[in-house]
Nucleic acid binder design. Structure first.
Length: 283
DNA sequence: ATAACATCCTGAGAGC
DNA sequence: TGCTCTCAGGATGTTA
């Protein structure tokens, strides 16, 4: 479900309730998500203070006072919801436990963080903070699209030699990390590039032009609190609203929004996943 | 090395 | 009401 903007939205929602706060109790309701939880996860989290909540690509990283870092991935359907009263200003009842509430943190400021994930494609792990980037899930990730290492020369250098469709290249987390199906479709529309176009057949200038476009799409989506299709919620339970700004994603058969274009949005399947684009505007 | 495909899992919605 | 079928924001692992 969540791509970079949704994960960043969740991180921002969790931060006020978790940063600098001790995990008073960790409740783990099943042995695994996508993979088994680490050994003694609940015990290793209990009593730890969350020093900082970071994000790397689509992962949330909670640096703990114990020298370990909790890695959280939301998979396709994961949510993290804050309930209770972190600031001590109101009395909030915690909601009744729901199906698929797999992990619950009770913070010592009164906040409760509930991780709910029906499909269980999500993950949690504990790693040494000092060597966190060497974790198998993080080690091979490409640069952050909103960081300085993601620039024109990087993207051209990574994309230009490849024969794969440009959509596949942008989805490859080793080339740039954090994009998913929605934002790749939206970025290619803005860049006027056909998603099935072979990467090595695109001029360097057009590849380079994707850099500011990708940044812009992601920043606008973060600004809107992410995109809510079926299950995405911000940490306070609110919907994101960037889905109202989609130009192509989920708009099969709807008119293209480019001024003067009378064509309609098409859907194709690329390596098993839906791609939306305008056949007139994107070449 | 590359790319297509199946796979993990549940739920929502469409069609009958 | 209920059955079957398709599809879904991710990412790994297997196959050709």
């Amino acid at each position: 479900m969540p791509e970079l903007p949704e994960v960043e939205t969740v991180r921002r929602g969790l931060a006020p309730a978790m940063e600098g706060v001790v995990i008073a109790r960790a409740q783990v309701n099943r042995p695994d998500l996508r993979w088994p939880f680490p050994e003694n996860m609940a015990q290793r989290l209990t009593g730890a203070r969350v020093e900082r909540l970071r994000r790397r690509s689509k992962y949330i990283l909670a640096d703990l006072s114990t020298g370990e870092t909790l890695l959280i991935h939301l998979g396709m359907s994961g949510r993290m919801l804050v309930s209770g009263d972190p600031l001590g200003q109101f009395v909030h009842e915690h909601p009744a436990p729901e199906k698929h509430d797999h992990v619950v943190f009770d913070m010592d400021n009164g906040a409760r963080i509930t991780f709910n994930d029906p499909r269980r494609f999500g993950a949690m792990d504990l790693l040494d903070t000092a060597t966190a980037e060497q974790h198998p899930l993080l080690a091979k990730l490409g640069p952050e699209p909103l960081g300085n290492a993601f620039n024109e020369s990087h993207l051209v250098g990574q994309v230009k030699p490849r024969a794969m469709p440009i959509k596949s290249a942008l989805l490859d987390q080793k080339i740039v990390s954090g994009l998913g199906n929605i934002y790749v479709c939206e970025a290619l529309y803005r860049g006027r590039i056909h998603p099935a176009r072979r990467s090595n057949k695109i001029s360097e200038a057009r590849i380079a032009a994707l850099v500011p476009i990708i940044r812009e799409v992601l920043e606008q989506a973060i600004e809107a609190g992410g995109s809510s299709l079926k299950d995405f919620r911000q940490a306070d339970g609110e919907l994101g609203y960037f889905q109202h700004s989609f130009d192509v994603y989920g708009r099969e058969g709807a008119p293209c929004r480019t001024p003067g274009c009378t064509d309609e949005i098409k859907r194709i399947v690329q390596s098993g996943r839906s791609t939306f684009y305008c056949p007139n505007c994107q070449r």
